[in-house]
Design a protein around this nucleic acid. Structure first.
Lengths: 264, 264
DNA sequence: AAGCATATGATTGTTTATGCTCACTTTACT
DNA sequence: AGTAAAGTGAGCATAAACAATCATATGCTT
């Protein structure tokens, strides 16, 4: 266990429980209290937590986006969600996909759909058209000949690989999408779907507007989180695909808004 | 086990487990700790992992891409050409890059320019702006925070990863490029620069027109080949970077056209 | 085949991370 | 308020990791 991992673990602890004691952290992580204090200090300096006597508490920024520290471990959950999403798609549809880890899994699941594989009879129209503003998704899918990839232009954001800005918006004005699979940073009935950055939110919003049907793909953690920039209100969402970890109360509220809920 | 394989293996380890110790990597790969440290350093410079004392941890960006994009193939000739090309670039310039293997090497060489690495002083303007219609290049460079990536929209072509079509052309109308590095399928004094597909040729042509200076990057085999679609005539090219395998007669003709020839 | 560039491993002095002690401060309890 | 207990920061010692350097080996170019 090196320092970075320890810092990451401390952040997880503090975000999950709201606060941590020096002693507890010391015991859990197997290092001396002095080391924990030093760790707290560096995280406090980065404003990722606030020191207290005997421990540390979470700050607003630590709840928002500890992306560098986050380890991708919900893979299984996301893959199941993605598989269900991919099964909603039928031949010749136009599919919109934005950026993010869940969206990337949907793209992979789409590519794995064997029905879309090239057939002997040389078809002229592609089996599927995917419109995306995520360059990593575009790069991955480009090798599949049976899928036509349309990329919005724009400026690439390092964290999410999403293209944003006026170029992306211009392109999106000119396309018509059957289903958009929308990955979000946070979702709840009041604020709707939200992303971490206003530029991303804007492009995603436009993708939603150009789409006949919008499917939000979100593991259960997204419903207890908040994010800076709203993409669209909850009533613009047709369907949500999530996992079984979501609170029943939340699901009820969402259903009351007329949203179809699918548990993957 | 050569270096490239080792770098690739290290990335696999770090992506799978989230972090690796120098000692473990040294034992697993059967090389000295000094070598592992050097390997970590080059991967850290590419921002594919983050160094820690005693090891390295995965960065957010190392999680997204399949390994084939991360591990550079070993084409010595193209790499030398690319290195010379990258050295023509100065800070804050706007660089255009089209698709293809040579172009991809130029992008990698640009990313390796240490002068562009992020400095302590938080600069607001990016060290470099890269405009490209190749999604693989965009995906690779997106992780480098010091480079601003502008992607033309368009439809992706499987063979070259290039985006083509009206969306790409609309975006290119609105940008101004200092230097375009133009990878070609074939080049000679009579037909000029040529690509394998008319759509690619059209987009590349537009990139040339939006650019103050155009540098063709072409290994010597390109001068004895032909290709279907012309991008532009030879007199629109300012400079050609090639290897020493090119026929003297050909070089003479090119120089007569006022083209600067650089042998990498 | 000679020569040059690159890759690797070993060595050495330097830096960093960690745990421990101790003098001091904050908190909690009577 | 006064006192005990817990927490803290500073300094110090140790072991691990590191960067720099050099020597050797490997491989590519001419």
């Amino acid at each position: 266990m090196n320092r970075q991992q320890r810092l990451s673990s401390i952040l997880e602890l503090v975000v999950e429980k709201g606060s941590v004691e020096v002693d507890d952290a010391s015991r859990i992580l197997g290092v001396s209290a002095a080391t924990i204090r030093r760790d707290f200090d560096v995280l406090a300096k980065r404003q990722l937590l606030t020191r207290t006597h005997g421990g540390a508490v979470a700050t607003g920024s630590s709840l928002g986006l500890p992306l560098t520290y986050k380890v991708a471990k919900d893979d299984k959950v996301k893959q199941r969600i993605a598989k269900v999403a991919a099964e909603m798609v039928t031949r010749h549809q136009i599919i919109g996909i934005n950026g993010g880890t869940t969206s990337t899994e949907v793209a992979r699941a789409l590519a794995a759909r064997t029905e879309f594989a090239p057939s002997d009879s040389q078809e002229h129209s592609p089996a599927l058209t995917v419109v995306t503003n995520a360059v990593n998704i575009a790069a991955e899918l480009t090798v599949r000949h049976q899928i036509k990839i349309v990329v919005t232009g724009g400026v690439a954001r390092p964290q999410s690989y999403e293209l944003t800005g006026p170029f992306a918006e211009e392109v999106l004005k000119e396309v018509n999408i059957d289903i958009t699979f929308l990955g979000v940073s946070a979702f709840n009935p009041i604020m709707g779907a939200a992303a971490n950055h206003e530029d991303e939110a804007k492009v995603n919003r436009q993708m939603v507007q150009r789409s006949k049907k919008v499917v939000v793909i979100a593991d259960s953690s997204k419903f207890t989180r908040t994010a800076f920039a709203t993409i669209c209100s909850a009533d613009q969402i047709d369907t949500i695909i999530t996992d079984s970890g979501t609170d029943e109360e939340m699901l009820k509220k969402l259903r009351q808004l007329g949203i179809e809920i699918i548990i993957a």
